[in-house]
Amino acid sequence: FEEQRISGMLELVSLNGNVVTGENNICYHHTHAVFSYKDGERHCMAAGHMKSITVLYTTEIELRPVTGGTIHRKYDPETGTGFWDFN
């Protein structure tokens, strides 16, 4: 993954992903975001995985619970990342 930090006046155009619990009931998110912004006179967009965000004014975020079950996160040492665990 390539990290990029963007600051300034951005508009959050799209946000989707999931929040699951892992070991010790710690919450983890896997989030994709699209932002629009201006660079001089150019209109630009940035998109990809979002590690963190600071909102200074307002944003609307809707969270929907899983019904009929639970999704957890299980660490996989072979790949070095976490995956959904439905057990």
Rank of each mutant, 00 (worst) to 15 (best):
G8S: 03
M9Q: 11
M9R: 15
L10C: 06
E11K: 14
L12S: 01
V13Q: 14
V13L: 14
S14R: 14
S14A: 15
S14K: 14
L15P: 11
L15N: 08
L15E: 15
N16W: 10
N16V: 03
N16P: 10
G17Y: 05
G17D: 02
N18V: 14
V19K: 03
V19E: 00
V19Q: 11
V19G: 05
V20R: 13
G22N: 05
G22E: 03
G22C: 01
E23I: 01
N24P: 05
N24R: 09
N25S: 10
N25C: 05
N25Q: 08
N25D: 11
N25G: 04
I26M: 03
I26P: 02
I26T: 12
Y28L: 11
H29T: 12
H29A: 12
H29Q: 09
H29L: 05
H29E: 07
H30L: 06
T31L: 14
T31F: 06
T31Q: 03
H32P: 06
H32C: 01
H32A: 08
A33N: 10
V34A: 09
V34I: 14
V34T: 15
F35E: 00
S36E: 11
S36N: 08
S36K: 14
Y37N: 10
Y37W: 09
Y37M: 04
K38Y: 07
G40S: 10
E41N: 12
R42S: 13
R42F: 06
H43I: 15
C44W: 00
C44F: 07
C44M: 14
M45Q: 13
M45S: 13
M45F: 15
A46Y: 03
A46N: 00
A46C: 04
A46I: 12
A47N: 04
A47Y: 06
A47W: 00
G48N: 03
G48Y: 02
H49Y: 13
H49D: 06
H49G: 02
H49W: 08
M50D: 02
M50R: 15
M50S: 11
K51H: 07
K51I: 06
S52K: 02
I53N: 00
T54W: 01
V55P: 05
L56C: 10
L56S: 03
Y57T: 10
T58Q: 10
T58A: 12
T58K: 15
T59C: 08
T59A: 15
T59E: 07
E60M: 11
I61K: 05
I61W: 05
I61Q: 13
E62Y: 13
L63T: 11
L63D: 11
L63V: 10
R64K: 15
R64G: 09
P65K: 15
P65H: 15
P65Y: 15
T67Q: 11
T67G: 06
T67C: 08
G68S: 06
G68Y: 05
G68F: 08
T70Y: 01
T70I: 02
T70K: 15
I71M: 07
I71H: 07
H72Y: 10
H72I: 02
H72Q: 08
H72M: 11
K74Q: 10
K74T: 13
Y75Q: 00
Y75E: 06
Y75D: 01
D76K: 02
E78F: 13
G80M: 14
G80A: 08
G80Y: 05
T81Y: 07
G82K: 08
F83T: 04
D85T: 04
F86M: 13
F86T: 14
F86S: 08
